[in-house]
């Protein structure tokens, strides 16, 4: 419960915070370089004298948006693949599940980095520097995370489709797609919601990791990982810079993980892991 409150506070802060805390994120002030927390700058300033609070509030929107969108991509792909595999059985099922296993054994981060490395310029040309990176990061993180949802949905379908009410629907002549949409998916939602919740946290970490490695968003978009990346070279003189941005990631991820765990206990008490 405490974690839900913390997460709600963080989400409200990044949504409403910039409306209240109206310091621009890119106001350069060389007089206040690397200053510690003060009334003017509650979380201090960075090496260009920019206000860290404002940057974190703004960057949080992007970090959390990436997390949510990537989760949605993963969930949609996962539900589709899982539903197709579960309903079709036979060779389609075998191939799709082999693909899921294959994707599970891919080294995610290197592949993520590779794709971004190869496609960055093309997408930037189409969507602009900010939009291009956003679309790519979301697509790639989501595209590498659909496997678990797919497996869950497939397993649920296989177990549920044998139950009577599906039999009844089949006897009434409901089409396959209708069966999946009306009867099976609602039943499979519990574990998918849990996996989706944890996926948001993982996607936030993935995005932060990319930005932290200098391969994610450009410097003018202060996502949490990017702020941490900028901060890491001045740890000795301005530790607050790294600490606040790292703490933002940590608190968000921790509270999401706790909520996911709570949801799992509530929705599916038999599974421990």
């Amino acid at each position: 419960m405490a974690s839900a409150v913390v997460l709600l506070a963080i989400v409200l802060a990044v949504l409403l915070g910039p409306l209240v805390w109206r310091v621009p994120i890119n106001e350069i002030d060389f007089a206040a370089q690397l200053a510690g927390p003060s009334w003017a700058h509650p979380l201090g300033t960075d090496d260009l004298g920019q206000d860290i609070l404002a940057r974190l509030l703004y960057g949080g929107r992007i970090s959390i948006a990436v997390g949510l969108c990537a989760m949605l991509v993963a969930a949609v792909v996962g539900v589709l693949v899982g539903a197709i595999a579960g309903m079709s059985r036979g060779s389609v099922d075998v191939v799709l599940m082999w693909l899921a296993d294959l994707f599970l054994s891919l080294p995610q981060l290197p592949l993520l980095l590779l794709i971004i490395y190869l496609f960055r310029d093309a997408l930037t040309n189409v969507f602009g520097s900010q939009g291009g990176i956003f679309v790519m990061v979301v697509a790639v993180i989501g595209g590498l995370r659909w496997m678990q949802v797919a497996r869950l949905v497939r397993a649920q379908i296989l177990s549920i489709r044998e139950k009577e009410f599906i039999e009844a629907a089949r006897a009434l002549g409901a089409s396959k797609i209708r069966q999946v949409v009306r009867h099976i998916l609602p039943n499979a939602m519990g574990p998918v919601i849990v996996a989706g919740t944890i996926d948001v946290a993982n996607a936030i970490i993935a995005e932060s990791t990319l930005s932290f490695l200098g391969l994610g968003f450009p410097p003018d978009i202060p996502t949490w990982g990017r702020v941490l990346f900028d901060a890491k070279d001045t740890l000795d003189v301005a530790p607050h810079w790294a600490l606040f941005s790292g703490a933002a990631i940590f608190l968000t991820v921790l509270s999401i993980n706790f909520i996911g765990d709570g949801l799992r206990d509530a929705l599916d008490p038999r599974r421990v892991l």
Binding site: I205, S208, L228, L235, A242, I249, V253, L254, F258, D261
Partner: peptide, 18 residues
């Protein structure tokens, strides 16, 4: 354990260096 795997490695690394 929860805290441990919610702490991203890049942040723990910086904390330890700090």
């Amino acid at each position: 354990a929860f805290i441990g795997f919610s702490l991203p490695t890049f942040f723990t690394g910086l904390l330890l260096i700090l």
